[in-house]
Design a protein around this nucleic acid. Structure first.
Length: 596
RNA sequence: GGUCGCGUAGCUCAGCUGGAUAGAGCAGCAGCCUUCUAAGCUGCGGGUCACAGGUUCGAAUCCUGUCGCGAUCACCA
């Protein structure tokens, strides 16, 4: 890395000039601002105390030293306390030479030690996936890819919530009013069908509540005493007592939901290494809680419920086992965390879960620590923000939920319309067109969601469909397609060009240097994206790269109207850029087309 | 009420491990296809970085407080 080289030499410079050995991290080196001459800038203010000279003079002295002693630095200028350094073209040509043949430039070639368990998606089987799940899935999948590209071993886990009162609601509604409807009979996706009965339950429940309130019940009493709610609770207790008929219906409806999810996951391009079902693991953790109780870490109340006291940690008391001895949500998470630790000894356990559960994970970590699990510190809650609609949050009750399947259909249609208007699919077969529309629709959707910092809430306006121009997925996909078009027109394959290029003959233009500098930054960006769990960092990097390339493409002939040696270099630089765009987009879960 | 997060252009967002005159896209306006794909490129207008203090040579960025928005504090998950 060039900034490492500059830093190392500056340390020498400071020692030589001012007689003091400084730590490299004291130095601030950044890319030179566009408005100034130079490539990289050393900010000398922090060195003034050592230099005991004016900013300008300090900068000049260091500049002189670097120019004389460092081959990579060919000149400098000083503005106030900013030492703007010009890096020699040779350095960038070397960089190009060293990496051009590597089609997977920046992607880790070998596994480093360290396993990461990454949980994401985690749907409920009572309703289909919506926009919020889409953000979760895209984030989780992309983060997994990014970590793998950083050399980590990643275990992607989906923990499906297939039990509890909400599933019983769907089941009850189906039993009462379903008339034996199946996905096959009504040609409905399984998860949509189950969701339909969940909505139906809610509707009936509301009617009954209104009726009870009308007859003088309070809202709360009406809620709990509505006949359908009582029946749903009975159904839950039947489920817990392993009633055969109930289990069978439960199995059937869950399978419908799983099959529906499978379809959605496949279309969205997300995948998992392991699927856990809550019904199988929800009893885990009880053993640990009882162990903690024995050791006096937790305590039992008169009604025999078990609690953790986290007041000294700034939290509250937390219920761990109900008075009837059954587990609650957090009990299960204690158990699954322990299981994952024992199975994989991961260096991190990442949970992609909405920011509404920050408190939950805070509690979870503290409880595990109380139990002496030091690895609790390795738990990371990647808490992402809500996806909001112009009117606020999505409310299933108000019918403002944006369904994942519908959304993908809409994206496909928008892609189709836009592409046809532009007449871009002339000469495409039917199948190729369909593939392209899907690729563009998915690209638009995924990039739209991933370019935003995960921790921030984001707005989705269904009225204005997702854009295809500007800072968007299709813009980047288009840039890739343009590059491929050049490569197709080149008489030789990139691999052949690499074999015959004469590096000594290369003269690089300022735009080309900009591209090379940006390309050189890819590994660092990838690392940061992994360290900060932020696909957005990567997304924004790729956008910058695509923008730079389009600017280059606009007024620099790459293949035609130039001599062969220049063309060789430019085609290869385009190829390099295309590879980084493709690989980077793949880490976001986005495919790029050859033509569009 | 306690805790946590967010507040940057009309809109959607970058920038936040402190550095030069705060950036993109969309929307608006004006240009660029007899040359490699115009889903592109160039230019113009648009800002009290919520507000007030503080730390610093230097603050959108760090600290404190205020305001606004949101989340959370279940024998729900």
């Amino acid at each position: 890395m060039i900034s490492e080289i500059i830093a190392g030499n500056t340390v020498d410079a400071v020692e030589h000039l001012f007689g003091q050995k400084i730590d490299k991290h004291l130095l601030q080196i950044e890319k030179t601002n566009r408005d100034y001459e130079g490539d990289f800038t050393l900010i000398v203010f922090p060195l003034l105390r050592i230099a005991k000279k004016s900013p300008e003079e300090t900068a000049r002295l260091i500049g002189d030293y670097l120019t004389a002693h460092c081959d990579e630095i060919k000149g400098y200028n000083v503005i106030k306390g900013f030492l703007n350094l010009a890096v020699s073209d040779n350095y960038w040509i070397e960089f190009f030479k060293n990496n051009i043949a590597d089609e997977k430039y920046g992607i880790a070639k070998t596994k480093k030690p360290g396993t990461v368990v990454l949980e994401y998606s985690s749907p409920n089987t009572n309703k289909p996936l919506h926009l919020g799940h889409v953000r979760n899935n895209l984030l989780g999948f992309s983060l997994g890819e990014i970590l793998k590209a950083n050399g980590k071993k990643v275990i992607r886990v989906n923990l499906i919530n297939d039990r509890g009162i909400h599933i019983c609601k769907s089941m009850l509604a189906w039993m009462k009013w379903g008339e034996g409807e199946t996905p096959e009979k009504s040609q409905l996706k399984g998860d949509q069908l189950v969701g339909k009965y969940y909505v139906l339950f809610d509707k009936k429940h509301k009617e009954q509540i209104a009726d009870l309130v009308h007859r003088g019940f309070t809202d709360d009493d009406a809620y709990a005493n509505a006949p359908v709610m009582k029946e749903a609770k009975e159904l839950l207790s039947k489920w817990e007592n392993a009633d055969e008929e109930t289990l069978e219906i439960w199995h059937t409806m869950n399978n419908w939901a799983y099959q529906g999810f499978e379809t959605t996951y496949k279309r969205l391009g997300v995948a998992f290494d392991e699927v856990n079902y809550e019904s199988k693991v929800y009893l885990d953790g009880k053993r640990l809680v009882l162990e903690g109780l024995d050791q006096g870490i937790f305590y039992r109340k008169e009604d025999s419920s078990v609690w953790a006291d986290l007041k000294s940690e700034g939290l509250d008391e937390k219920l761990l086992l109900r008075s009837d001895g059954t587990s609650v949500y957090i009990t299960q998470d204690i158990g699954t965390a322990e299981r994952r630790y024992e199975a994989y000894s991961p260096e991190k356990m990442i949970y992609v879960v909405g920011n509404e559960q920050i408190y939950h994970f805070d509690v979870l970590k503290n409880i595990l620590k109380k139990l002496g699990r030091k690895w609790a510190d390795n738990i990371v809650h990647l808490s992402y923000g809500m996806v909001e609609l112009p009117h606020g949050r999505m409310k299933s009750r108000e019918g403002t939920v944006v369904d994942a399947d519908d959304l993908m259909d809409e994206m496909y249609n928008t892609a189709k319309m836009t592409t046809e208007e532009l007449g871009k699919t002339e000469g495409f077969s039917k199948e190729e067109s369909v593939q392209l529309y899907e690729m563009l629709g998915q690209g638009a959707l995924k990039y739209y969601m991933l370019k935003v910092d995960p921790k921030k809430n984001m707005l989705f306006n269904p009225e204005e469909s997702i854009d295809f121009n500007g800072n968007t997925g299709p813009f980047i996909q288009y840039t890739h397609a343009r590059i491929q078009s050049i490569l197709r027109k080149s008489e030789q394959s990139p691999q052949n060009l690499v074999a015959e290029i004469d590096y000594d003959s290369i003269n690089i233009l300022p735009v080309e240097k900009e591209l090379l500098i940006h390309l050189a930054g890819f590994p660092e960006v990838l690392q940061n994206a992994g360290d900060q769990y932020s696909p957005a960092t990567l997304a924004n990097y790729i956008y910058e790269l695509a923008k730079l390339f389009n600017h280059y493409y606009q007024d620099t002939p790459i293949l035609k109207r130039i001599d062969e040696k220049t063309a060789t270099f430019r085609v290869l630089l385009s190829w390099f850029t295309g590879n980084v765009i493709r690989n980077g987009m793949a880490l976001l879960g986005i495919k790029v087309p050859q033509k569009m």
